[in-house]
Structure formats: C-alpha cells, structure tokens
Amino acid sequence: MTRFNAAELLAVIAARQLRDDTAVFAGVGVPLLAAALAKRRHAPRLTMVIEGGIIGPQIAPGRLPVSTNEMRAAHRATMLPGITDAFLFAQRGFVDVGFMGGAQIDQYGNINTSVLGPDYWHPKVRLPGTGGANDIASLCREVIIVTPHEKRRFVERVDFVTSPAWLRGDGARRAAGLLFGGVSRVVTTLGILGFEPDSKRMRIEATHPGVSADVIRQNTGFALLEAAQIETTEPPSDDELEMLRSLDPERRFLG
C-alpha cells in the first residue's frame, strides 16, 4: 500500500518547484494546494496571485475555493485589484511562475482546453475554454504544467492551441511575438518532463520512485527525448503529506 495518492504526489512535487521570494499564478485545486504547501513549508515569502483578481490570500483549511472568483479564494487577501489588473501584473513581469493543467498537451508543451475535433465552430467536444490559461502561458516568467500522466492527454498534436508553450519549436514562440516565458517543466504523476533547449521537444528529466522511463514512454502519445541524466525524485515525506492534508481535511481536491 502506498502512503499517498496521485493528487498528493502531484501537489507535493509541484510545491517543491516554487522558490521563496517569488510570486505564483495558481488556479484552484491541486495548484492552489501546492502553492499553499510551499508557502507553509519552505517559501514563506511566496505570494499567490489568483485569476479572480486576488493577491496574497490565506486559504482557510476546510473552506477551499472551487473557483478562482469567490470569497474562499479571497480569504484574508492583501489586495483585490480586479481580474484585468491581476493579469497585467503578470504582463509587467511580476509573476515568476504560472501553474497550469490541460485536457491535451503536445510535445512542445502547448495546451488545449477549448475543443476536441478539427473544426472549432463544430466541435466534437466543447470544453470550458481558456479562462486565464492562455494569459498565464503568455505572460508569466515561467510556466509549470501539473497534470496526471495519461496517454490520451499527451498527444502528438493538440486539436487546438488554447495556451501556447513552444508552438512548433525552433523559435516559433518568439516569432509569434511571445517575448517572455514559456513552459519549463511538466510535473506529472509519473515524473518530471522538461524541454530540449534547442528543439523545444519534451524530454524525460526525472522519474518518480518505482517508475521507469519506459513506463513514462508507454503512457505518452508521442516520442519523448531524454535528458543526459535522468534523476529520481524524492518521494513525499511524512511532513509534507501531513501539512498538505491539513489544508484539505475534507479531501475536496486530494481525493
């Protein structure tokens, strides 16, 4: 029996990516838990920025928000600048990291949360849409994708680029006018993926304990490159798990 589930693993590994003295754009669910965990554990001077126009909230354990635009997400915030201005802080360069998820992710880190099928106006499946994801992907200094690792999610080509990472690689992001940022890492339930510096194709950089690079490949719908050295992540510690679980006692997002 494992000591933690997939959501807990994701939240702990994602939290470790955050450094002190930075600002993070976090959506509700696992990303918000990860940011809250980092702030409590190793990054006390981290600031959370939330899409609903909220800066510096102190999320109340047991009353986790289900949307980025509600009182639970604004609990004891330090500023409520409004939605447009919250994103403009990111455009100005104040937001170091953006956490993102996605229905489909391709080998260049581009994300689709809009439509499945080839025709936007006649979709096979209509998904909720970008929300602020496109803006986070465009404007934060660095983006970290946090997602369960499933073959249907990791596709060769997304049906629709809702949120741009490296587009088709080879300087395409810069050429499109996206001067800043880009996806640096993809934290999954199997390991940590990054991007080969020149081609910007996704590569395996670390595996979680007990997971092989082969298992990651088998669960990915495109050919993955490999870093020169593949690390093994440290499993979540008791201390990390305890602190994380105290944030979500109802297990609304930890399952």
Partner: peptide, 27 residues
C-alpha cells in the same frame, strides 16, 4: 483569453478602438 476580454471592455471604457497587449499571440 480572460485578459483579452478584460482589455476589450477596458478599451471600450477608454473610448479607443483597441489596446496593445502581449497575450493571445501565437495561439
């Protein structure tokens, strides 16, 4: 995008035809 729609309303509020931004490009 969320910011782009916010800027559409803000451009309207300002009475100008558009606002420059660094978002939504390339998507």
């Amino acid at each position: 995008s969320h910011l782009a729609l916010g800027l559409r309303f803000r451009a309207g509020a300002m009475g100008v035809p558009f606002l420059p931004a660094l978002t939504m490009l390339g998507s």
